[in-house]
Design a protein around this nucleic acid. Structure first.
Lengths: 355, 355
DNA sequence: CGGGGAGATGTTTACGTAAACAGAATGAGT
DNA sequence: ACTCATTCTGTTTACGTAAACATCTCCCCG
């Protein structure tokens, strides 16, 4: 082989080209590759002068450590997989942001997979896809229709979930959906409304079911009539359509929407129909998205501490990674406080006799 | 060494434990590891019977290919890095969703990094962090204050950017900010407003600057007075605060807000002050977030085709990856149409004599 | 002034995979 | 039957890194 020629040995075999390696740096700096490795990782002491020489060589060659080789050697990727159903929903978005932030603080990056349609097979596929990726742990936000059994992931893979239906199967972190929903409904009852109607999220969704059940239970506990809930799909659009129906009825004085978007759509429809909020109809949402405070009227809603949840999810992963902790049964709950604004008020007129 | 004992050789050296390897599968199936590799990749034909045997062994051992080893061998990661400033902003959120979707279609996953504060060093740090990660390409959405020079990433790294200030330095894809802004302002002028006020995004932000400049230019071209713009930071909160100021003045009849959130905050403040929208003040936003159509009144705004942008960004990366295409000067523009809703109308009374 | 230890550096090896090459088995055509 | 092509499978090797182990160099202290 030629002696001084460096960098010329690229492509002699069928291998795809790669950047300068630790060996190239070593040769240029006149040290062993192990010393370069030591400088690069900072794991062991290197004489200041030597380190400088190595760093110079690195800069000169534009060296960056090969992450694949590192991962192979060390057996981990410093990366967490994240599965979410609809990144766009503000809730997910905030949680994701928190996950990314918390992960970065731990020196981990986040690999994101979105599940287009919330069918069980899609989620399984996403998990398959992701568990074959370079990840050390998996966070699932809203698995929607997927069941724990269908997931079939490597038994050693640390998992954290914010979907309540996975409690008992995987460690979970989630908002206190039930408490928040109960507070919302009770707030409306306390204002003097005879009963509270509900715009539900899509059936099969964990949070949607929890909120609907809590709504119903609160009414039952208070001895109130439980009206037929309206079926929504989380979108403002459904909220608007359902709102058009509600606007025609004068027996509806209070509505608990399963999220803020649907609440916004509802209010839009009510405004259009000339029904006043909250004078004619009180509305409560769920999530407390950023815009909730700036809707008209400002929306009374249940706040989800998405940031906290995201942070906790990462912590759950980290605990499993580090000290082999078994957290299968773990379930962290984050409070979901009711934020009272101006979309709720006492009903103008009591109407005991409906229809 | 013992003969039949498999799986027992874990941990004999200082290596961290890993799952079953291709060799373990090969031993169990009674074939060579290369054949297992062939089954695993599907790259070359394997006799059906042999394949079955291998697949059985894989299932039995719970084998999953080691991504790090693959990446090391093949020189790529099938992964794209993504840097965004605030995941939460609906715009980014939608673009990210599209990027993830498009990347997945190409068999790539997406590694996400959020930049907390939009300072130049933060972005550089994020790039450093990410370019040392396992990625084959880098997409930057809103680098905010970072300059192209400060990025200093590996020269071979394919990059795609949706920030206009990077045009000429890196291939870019972005909405037609100027055209959209011009249409918004012109729409208000055409309705008969003497001039149009502007709530700007944070200084130093590319899109914010573009929108402000286009706003000013349109007014100048029409021979109208250019009022001092209001300084916002994208948040609904600033929109609200600025709105409180605007509500006190009766010379403001039309406002072009640099995004929908600020427009929502503005409208909130106007409502509170008893100023009617659009009767007293017309408002136009930018982005067309999902809620824009359901604000009250439904918001006239400039739509950004975030989904298209995200998709195009991935395409730009792919073209650079595949056929060594040089796209440095590339700049794809996506139309940004004005969506007229009900937050804009002709001014009630012409006031030619201002002040 | 010599022995001992600490600090700094070098050498060897393995991580799991897939490309390149090589060899074996099968079948088709004459 | 015999060659030759085709299909399938096995062997060797390298990817870039870092742990484990082996030296080698100094300096301190008796």
């Amino acid at each position: 082989m030629s002696s001084e020629v460096r960098g010329a040995r690229r492509g002699i075999k069928g291998h795809p080209k790669t950047g300068p390696s630790i060996g190239d740096v070593a040769r240029l700096a006149g040290v062993s590759s192990q010393t370069v490795s030591r400088v690069s990782t900072g794991s062991e002491p290197v004489k200041a002068e030597t380190r400088e020489r190595v760093l110079d060589a690195m800069r000169q060659l534009g060296y960056a450590p090969n992450h694949a080789a590192r991962a192979l050697r060390q057996g981990n990727f410093r990366s967490i997989g994240l599965i979410a159903h609809q990144v766009i929903r503000t809730g997910e978005s905030k949680t994701i942001e928190a996950v990314i932030e918390a992960a970065r603080r731990e020196g981990y990056s986040v690999s994101l997979v979105d599940v287009e349609s919330p069918s069980s097979s899609d989620v399984s596929e996403a998990v398959q896809h992701l568990s074959h990726q370079a990840i050390d742990g998996l966070i699932i936000i809203r698995a929607e229709t997927a069941t724990p059994a269908a997931l079939a992931l490597p038994p050693t893979m640390p998992v954290a979930v914010s979907d309540s239906r996975f409690i008992g199967h995987h460690p979970a972190v989630g908002a206190d959906q039930v408490g928040g929903s109960r507070a919302a409904v009770q707030h409306l009852l306390d204002l003097g409304h005879a009963t509270v109607h509900h715009i539900a999220g899509p059936g099969g969704s964990g949070p949607a079911d929890l909120r609907a059940t809590a709504w119903k239970q609160t009414l039952v506990n208070a001895g109130r009539e439980v009206p037929e809930p309206f079926d929504g799909d989380w979108s403002a659009e459904t909220g608007y359509k359902i709102g058009n129906e509600i606007a025609k009825r004068d027996d509806v004085t209070a509505v608990f929407a399963a999220n803020d978007e649907m609440a916004a759509g509802l209010i839009h429809a009510l405004h259009e129909a000339g029904r006043r909020v909250p004078d004619d109809v009180s509305v409560v949402g769920f999530d407390d998205i950023d815009l909730a405070a700036h809707l008209w009227p400002p929306l009374t809603t249940v706040r989800q501490e998405f940031h906290q949840i995201g942070h906790d999810l990462v912590e759950v992963i980290m605990r499993q990674l580090g000290g082999r902790e078994q957290l299968t049964g773990y379930h962290g709950t984050v409070a979901a406080p009711l934020i009272v604004r101006q979309s709720t008020a006492a009903p103008r007129k009591r109407r005991r006799t409906r229809r």
